[in-house]
Design a protein around this nucleic acid. Structure first.
Lengths: 229, 229
DNA sequence: TCAAAAGTGTTTATAATACACCCATGG
DNA sequence: CCATGGGTGTATTATAAACACTTTTGA
């Protein structure tokens, strides 16, 4: 008995990227308007096909880079979608990835090439194929993750105020959080450094700036600290 | 601009199944000893290739059925593994699925055809390819899931004692639980029906039998009740 | 001087954990 | 009559949630 790989069916393997962004207020998702068939003119997630010598993580990064010009952004694998007719052209399996990026750091030009636009999560259009399902799964996963692992490093300026951080969490979780409870919680994790500087742009009083303590963060991450919000 | 699918690389897409079982004491995993190349004679997860007109979930069920004869078992997609050289014969992506079954319900004959054996989790051999990594990811996921969603329906006889249920949780989580706290926790979920019958096999006093209240369970499941153990 | 956002602690409620003794029965 | 596993409740601790007033300063 021998496994003869040659008689097995091969398939196309696509990678679709759910790119979340945060603009100080709102959680948004980056969508492209397809200027190619099938479904030309419709909105869609950015995607591409896995190449022969590429692992899925690399493909996801490549696709993110193609659209935004960004590099070295952590992307997390979400799920593999395999409905037989999900792509009308040809049988295609899609492994989806998601990430959340700083909305101000993308490359405008690149985005324009793809007719890309940021959409508020409350205002997402109908997407091609099963992309709405992917997006829905991604936001649920992002919320669950946010409650377990602190996020934010990549999504905020190097220095940020507690208020910005809180707004990020509120945008992801889609609920208001109590200011005092939030600060207590974050402080109890002990992974931020409070700076002497203040950010004066948001109020007359100004608010203290913080930065992440990467070292402490890495040490604690090992045990996956649990953050309930 | 048009997407020409024909110039894209196609790949083999495998599905590997992590089949956990529970034998009243121990959490085990079902492995096969390969009687085919590559890696003939070595231990491995049961797997197969996705067929042209099959979705991944179906492939996973088919593979489980081939090995155990079992049907209609819920399998959960775990992760897609894509290292370029993970399979030495040919580029193969593998989407892994896991499940946990009642160890007494499998079909002996089928299992023998595949030289399959149940291994205690504490005693897993070296597996081919990246299968040890898959297994590790699966057990972690199973543990996390167990803390969030009650499991057990499919893994226990229709009627079971609190002690059996506790042992199942202990086997999955790999830690001892307090008897009284466990019962309180389970009761607070309010998804079990306590029967008048007792199971007399495990002690002289006998212990009450319970069964799942499927209706209540389905109602509550919607909100994903949280069970911390 | 006032509007707008920042900063700050305590109390209450809920959830998790720790813990020990009696019960029933077959051998 | 005793060894074995089954059954039961409370007190303590830890975590989460609710809650309101004062501060600063530029316009």
């Amino acid at each position: 008995m021998l496994n003869d790989y040659s008689k097995e069916d091969k398939v196309l393997l696509a990678v679709d990227c759910i790119i979340f962004g945060f603009d100080n207020d709102d959680l948004k998702v980056l969508l492209i308007q397809r200027n190619f068939e099938p479904e030309k003119g419709k909105w869609s997630l950015m995607g591409g096909f896995l190449k022969k010598n590429e692992v899925l993580d690399e493909a996801a990064s490549r696709i993110l880079n193609t659209l935004t010009g960004m590099n070295e952004i952590y992307m997390e694998q979400l799920y593999s979608f395999s409905e037989v007719d999900r792509d009308p052209v040809e049988r295609t399996i899609s492994t989806s990835y998601y990430t959340i990026i700083n909305i101000e750091k993308y490359n405008e030009e690149l985005i324009e090439n793809y007719n890309a636009r940021w959409f508020s999560m409350s205002n997402v259009p109908h997407l091609i194929f099963d992309h709405n399902i992917m997006l829905d799964k991604a936001i649920k996963r992002l919320r669950r993750r946010t409650s377990i692992n602190p996020i934010g490093f990549e999504l905020l300026p190097e220095m940020f105020t507690m208020r910005q951080l809180q707004k990020l969490y509120e945008a992801i979780l889609d609920k208001k959080l109590d200011k005092r409870n939030f600060i207590n919680k974050i402080n109890s994790m002990d992974i931020l450094i409070k700076l002497d500087e203040k950010d004066m742009t948001s109020s007359t009083k100004g608010s203290y700036l913080y930065k992440f303590d990467r070292e402490k963060y890495d040490k604690k991450k090992v045990n996956n600290f649990y953050l309930k919000l």
